[in-house]
Nucleic acid binder design. Structure first.
Length: 627
RNA sequence: GGUCCUGUAGUUCAAUGGAUAGAACAAGUGUUUCCUAAACACUAGAUCCGGGUUCGAUUCCCGGCGGGACUACCA
């Protein structure tokens, strides 16, 4: 029972769907073309065939490129009531529609598809409406907006961030922007995993082999320095294991009895007992890491409204577990360890407190969850965490529910796939990890090189060049990652650098820059296209298609929010930009002789540029004025 | 073994149950006296296998086969 509930809330909860549909995007009069057509078709069916049909059953889709028309009605479902062939049904409905509503100007029928052409007046009016809304498709949360807390990033403080973290951070930041645009009051949060055995490993190695090194003394970024000692620990630990195995121990025993791991465990115990020396070292080394992380986050362009530290939440978790034990929800074994028996729910038994009283990951997450709900009026809690932890969140939802938190079962685990290298998974021990700082810098350097080669930035100051290279390099990286369906594993090949051509961030940025350039020139020429009505404008198909595409933006934003998928925004951006580039290539804007037509194309360009900017913002990607 | 995710051109990615399965990269070719050629256009190339539901299946269901994750007193 509970399990099936969890399944429903696993990716997108059913509650959320209901809530989300109550919200409305920027209202507009001309805009709901789909609904208008559905109503007309329903009327037609009633008149022609004498049957009421549900609006939902009337499928409206965009007409495919190779056919004439703007929107298409699928007529197969109506053949039962019409008692005619799909073609005849389409003909009948088409004829009726044309006589009824002036915005439908033409139709053609191919197989079971009724293609309708929409009038130029409709499209131009629609464009004017959109042009008047700089934030078209983007909602602004008001005071009554419900709170959605989104946890992302969640680093450990024992090593620097890598490509996997980049995917997490970009997805988390982007989904936060998207949910804001859907009217949620979003709180971005980060849970820093600043305690535990792994931190002790770095600390111990530094203490034993560090010779007092600091970021200052070595010139290393703090997180990288600490990460170095994590690796040092691992090497020394491995050596000890090998030594013990040579003496005849099994691998399992050797791993448990190596002096280094025992020392690290002692250190963790000392930390939990507030040992001053250990605590001091912990604070110092974590401080180094935070300084390093701050630099990385800033460069990546992500931020947080509220940061939690597990060192401050794990005790709360222990309390809740002990409470659960007292209530009989959990049980204790002979060695004093505390467990939850989840076998009735189809899962295994789960450890919540070790025999020595120290807490585990799950304990901490319970405590963190409780603090958050004490701090905020949260309606929806979202965890942006890799799919390797699907089981963890399945268990967490169950445990929170058992502990009496009503919201536990409704949590959303925004689960995403791994970033893999062509050889397979990244492994820090084998040195195949792609470091976040290095990768960003490489992208920026490479963008700068390309820009200079193409001679695009000849009239720019050094500072402008740096800024544009940063936008392009990061744009390429972010788009590369966000355009992929979050659920899927993706491959990154460090040898083939990320492209700047084709379906890429820079392609979209470039289009924006070209639009801005045209608009600048229009201003220089003194063309005023600010307020204008378009009557009797002849629209090329490319132009009405563009307006139609732009008008779909709010739907895309909504869908991206419902499905937790920045990739939908990315794919839409690409489609829009590709369409605009064709238009740009085939038509003159500033050299168009017909003044009304020129102004129309300027407004169209401006609207497209604006949509690009708004859409890319949802992906956390900046768009340059020139490049 | 169990649970979950996933399988589409050589490669990386698309496709609310709808038309001839879209792009990009890589390969080959064309378009700059014209608003930025990081562009545009053209050529060639793909749904793992077998059933089922449907007027219609890449999509939904069942069964195989392949890839991945989890099933830790790591976080």
């Amino acid at each position: 029972m509970l399990f099936s509930h969890w399944k429903a809330s696993f990716f997108v909860s059913s509650n959320y769907r209901i809530f989300a549909t109550k919200k409305k995007h920027n209202s507009h009069t001309t805009m709901n073309l789909e609904l208008t057509i559905q109503n007309e078709v329903a009327k037609a069916i009633k008149e022609l065939f004498g049957t009421e049909v549900e609006l939902k059953s009337i499928q409206i889709q965009k007409t495919k490129k190779e056919f004439e028309g703007d929107v298409t009605v699928v007529t197969f479902p109506f053949t039962k009531v019409s008692r005619k062939s799909p073609e005849q049904t389409g003909e009948a409905i088409g004829t009726f529609l044309i006589s009824q509503n002036p915005i439908i100007t033409k139709f053609n029928v191919i197989k079971g598809f009724l293609n309708l052409s929409i009038s130029a007046e409709y499209w131009t009016k629609l464009l004017i409406e959109i042009n008047q809304q700089p934030q078209f498709g983007i909602m602004t949360p008001d005071e009554q907006a419900k709170v959605m807390m989104i946890e992302y990033s969640s680093p450990n403080t024992n090593k620097p961030l890598h490509l996997g973290h980049i995917r997490n951070n970009l997805l988390g930041y982007s989904i936060a922007e998207i949910q804001k645009a859907n009217g949620w009051n979003v709180i971005k949060t980060n849970i820093v995993n600043d305690r535990g055995i792994h931190i002790c490993k770095s600390m111990l190695a530094w203490k034993l082999f560090g010779n007092g090194e600091t970021p200052q003394s070595t010139g290393m970024k703090g997180d990288h320095l600490v990460g170095k000692y994590y690796v040092v620990f691992d090497k020394a630990y491995k050596a000890e294991i090998k030594e013990l195995m040579d003496k005849g121990l099994t691998e399992e025993d050797a791993k448990k009895k190596a002096p280094l791991i025992l020392a690290a465990q002692n250190m963790l115990l000392a930390w939990e007992n507030n040992d001053p020396e250990v605590y001091q070292l912990w604070q110092t080394m974590n401080g180094w890491v935070y300084e390093g992380f701050e630099v990385t986050y800033k460069k990546l362009g992500v931020d947080f409204d509220k940061i939690y530290y597990e060192s401050q939440t794990y005790l709360e978790g222990k309390n809740k577990v002990e409470e659960g034990l007292a209530k009989g929800v959990f049980y204790q074994r002979e060695d004093r360890s505390v467990w939850a028996d989840l076998t009735p729910d189809g899962l295994d038994e789960k450890l919540l407190l070790r025999g020595d009283g120290t807490s585990v990951y799950m304990t901490q997450d319970i405590g963190t969850a409780k603090l958050r709900y004490d701090d905020y009026q949260i309606s929806k809690m979202v965890y942006v965490v890799g799919n390797e932890q699907n089981y963890h969140f399945q268990v967490l939802a169950l445990l929170l529910d058992k502990l009496g938190f009503s919201w536990g079962k409704d949590l959303v685990h925004f689960s995403y796939g791994m970033v893999e290298l062509p050889e397979g998974k990244m492994k820090s021990r084998e040195g195949t990890v792609v470091d976040a700082d290095d990768l960003m810098q490489e992208m920026i350097d490479s963008a700068k090189e390309t820009s200079l080669e193409l001679g695009k930035l000849d009239n720019c100051t050094e500072q402008e060049i740096e800024e544009i290279a940063r936008m392009i390099g990061l744009g390429a990286l972010k788009y590369f990652i966000l355009k992929v369906d979050p659920r899927k594993n993706m491959t990154f090949n460090p040898k083939e650098s990320i492209d700047f051509n084709g379906n890429t961030g820079p392609f979209i940025q470039y289009t924006h820059a070209r639009i801005k350039s045209v608009l600048r020139k229009a201003n220089e020429m003194g063309v005023d296209y600010s307020s204008i009505t378009f009557e009797n404008i002849q629209l090329a198909e490319k132009e009405s298609n563009l307006i139609q595409l732009v008008s779909e933006f709010p739907n895309v934003v909504k869908q991206a929010g419902d499905e937790f998928s920045p990739a939908l925004i990315a794919n839409y951006m690409y489609e829009l930009v590709k369409e605009y580039n064709q238009f740009y290539h085939d038509f003159s804007i500033l050299k168009e002789e017909n003044e009304d037509c020129k102004k129309f194309r300027l407004v169209l360009s401006k609207t497209v540029g604006n949509t690009i900017q708004n859409g890319m913002k949802l992906l956390g990607i900046d768009v340059p004025e020139r490049m």
